Structures are given as C-alpha cells and as structure tokens.
Amino acid sequence: RANLDSVVSVKPKTKRAKRFLEKRESKLTENTKNAMLIKGGNANSTVTDALKDIVSVFTLRKNITRPFDDQTSLEFFSKKSDCSLFMFGSHNKKRPNNLIIGRMFDYHVLDMIELGIEKLVSLKDIKNSKCPEGTKPMLVFAGEVFDLNEDYKRLKNLLIDFFRGPTVPNIRLAGLEYILHFTAVDGKIFMRSYKVLLKKSGCKIPRIELEEMGPSLDLVMRRTHLASDDLYKLSLKQPKAVKPKKKKNISHDVFGTTYGRIHMQKQDLDKLQTRKMKGLKKRPAEKMVENDEGIRPKITKSA
C-alpha cells in the first residue's frame, strides 16, 4: 500500500502527533495489512456467523452502506483505522447472504468482489479440535478457471492477500497445520478449512491426514469492481531499494535450487602438476624408447 498523502506537508504540534504521522509515512517494507469487517445494517445470522468464522479476532462495525454505490464510508474507515483490506456483509431480498471482499490503495478502493453465500457450515457446527489463533494457513486453489478467467484471477489474488497473514522468515514443521482450500467448478467457489494431523509412519517423514475443521462455505460470484490495468500496475510498483540486485551467471530452477556458472580459461593438461609416486616413475627401458624416438634426454648437473 503506497501512501501518497505523505506528500502533503503537515507540521505536528505534539510529539504524539509526530509519531502518528511517522507511522503513516511511506516505508520501503510495508507493515502487515490489517482487515476491517463491516456488518451491514440488515445482515442476518448467516452473514454474521460467516464474518465471525473467517477471522478469529472479530471487530464488528455496524454501518448501513452500499459499497458498490457509495465508497466514501469505506475509505473513511480505512484511513481512520489504517486498514487496507475489508469485508462487508449484508442481506436483502435481491442479494441474500451477501459478502463483499476488497482492498484499498492509498485509502481508495482498488478492487472488490461480491460473493453470495449459498451454504454455510460454521465452526461451532463441527465438533473437533481447532487450530490455535495466529496460525499461518497454507492456501490451495483448485480449478482451471483461476488461471483462465480474469475475474477469478483477481479473486485468487485477493484471497491470497486477505488470508496470507504476516511474512515470516522461517516456519517449523508442526506449524504447518492449517489448510484453506478453494475449489472453483461449475460457476461456484467452495471454501473448505482443514486441520493437518501428523501421524506416525514408521519413518522420518510423518503420515499426513486432513480433518475438516470449519468454516465451510459454498459461494457464488456476483458483481465485481476491478481496477484498471494501469492503476493495478501502479499499486504493485516497488521502490528500487527493495528490489533485489540481479547477480550475473546465477539461475534458479522451479524447486528453488541455485545454480552458478563459472567461466575458466582453457587448461594445458601437459603442464598439470600431479602427485609424484614411485609407481608412476618411468623405467630405464621406457626412457631409452623415448630417446630413440628423438626425445632429448634430460641433462643433469654434475657434481
């Protein structure tokens, strides 16, 4: 998220205001994105349960607004709470059980997609163990439409941005215990949540089993509001200081293995110094053969 408002020079009057403005300034490495969940004034229990199950820490904002008609209230809440992601839930006769997921760029709506809930299985409806709070999920997308259709491509990117969580340098094997699976088929999107169980297998690598944990949603795509190609490209622009410097003669394969190419001059194997061993010494008969062939014998210095 680029903060273009920092161009306007505002002189703080207190130290607290100065710290606030410094926090809002543009950074080379942006902080983790925060999400706000907004409950529409006419949201029913299905939409409310879906919002509560999507995030473990649920901050409810109740507001009567229509994001596709008027985006000013969303942009106001985004700037006030410094949130670049949002999810809005509502319910009416024309669009029942409605969820709108979107994101901001410079505190303005970049893109948002409207999804309809056709079926919901809540966390409380599945009686088994759950993953602890703050567990980083593994995201799995199934379906060719995620790679072929432009709307589904943007939806996939938006879901990754929404559920990816904070960036961490390392992760332990036991921490890979939460899977979010999205399947797109026949015009519907099936969201399933699984807990990974590591079972004994008799060897070093454990046996993997998946246990459905919830929530489980059957979704259908309704309306979309996507940014233009130029604006979307601008939102992905990174500072030059963040981009890694390109190293010559180094390549990577699909598995992340690093390969390096070394350029060396052609070696003269005749001048190669080998290890001196008694077994490799030439016998007098071999030396006589070389002398007969016209090879000049080596002249030793006399005492």
Rank of each mutant, 00 (worst) to 15 (best):
L269A: 04
K119N: 13
T274V: 09
K287Y: 06
D292E: 08
A50L: 02
D161C: 04
G143L: 07
M221N: 01
G134I: 00
S81T: 12
M221W: 02
I117V: 12
F146K: 03
P244R: 11
V168T: 15
R16M: 06
K27M: 05
G41F: 09
T183M: 05
A174M: 03
V121C: 03
K127L: 13
K281G: 03
T300I: 12
K204W: 10
K271R: 13
L269C: 01
H252Q: 10
L226E: 03
S45K: 09
K233E: 07
F190I: 14
D70L: 02
F146G: 07
A184E: 06
D151G: 01
T224S: 15
R192W: 01
R275E: 08
L37M: 15
S216M: 09
D147I: 02
G102N: 04
P166Y: 00
F146Q: 03
E25K: 13
A2G: 15
F58P: 02
K136A: 07
M288Q: 12
D69F: 08
A303H: 13
L28W: 11
K301L: 13
I205V: 15
T274R: 08
T46K: 09
V109D: 01
V145A: 08
F105T: 05
E133I: 05
P215M: 13
V109F: 05
L159H: 04
P96D: 02
D111S: 11
V121A: 06
S235E: 04
L60E: 13
V220D: 04
V220K: 14
I54P: 05
P206Q: 02
A227S: 14
A241P: 01
M112Q: 06
Y232L: 12
T29C: 05
K199R: 10
K62W: 00
V145S: 04
R103C: 15
D106R: 07
Q71G: 00
V55S: 11
A17D: 14
I179M: 07
K233I: 09
F162Q: 01
P169V: 07
E212W: 06
N44D: 13
D125Q: 15
